[in-house]
Amino acid sequence: MTSFVAAAGMGAPVRGRALVASDGFSARYDLDRLRGVFSRPDHALAGQSYVGRILVLDGAKGGVATAWMLHEMAARGIAPAALVLNRVNPIMVQGAALAGFTLLSGFDVDITRAVPDGAEVEVDPLADPPVLRLLG
């Protein structure tokens, strides 16, 4: 089984199908949170649903709204299952901490190139060190 060690993680372990792109993430800038899809026209995942998917993206973008929006999305059940990023900003960490959201970041490789789009993965922030595992 191939696994990738992360510098940091929080939240509960989850399994699911990865949605991967070499692009950033901001709940305000990139998402139509009512429909559960990426809505920013020039985002690499424009038009795709993120609901229940493990998002594997490059880095955190934009402003501070994601700190509330992860909580709001989770409360309505229209949220990703986890967020895996090469690089975080404090807002992603703060938002994950409020929402009890699973977050993993900081890899030795470009995680958006290492994980195939659509792959079944397990994200385990409780492992020491935190890890993403490719399943199957």
Partner: peptide
Amino acid sequence: MADTESLGEAG
């Protein structure tokens, strides 16, 4: 920063 579009009902 806490506009209600970000907070939603849950926030």
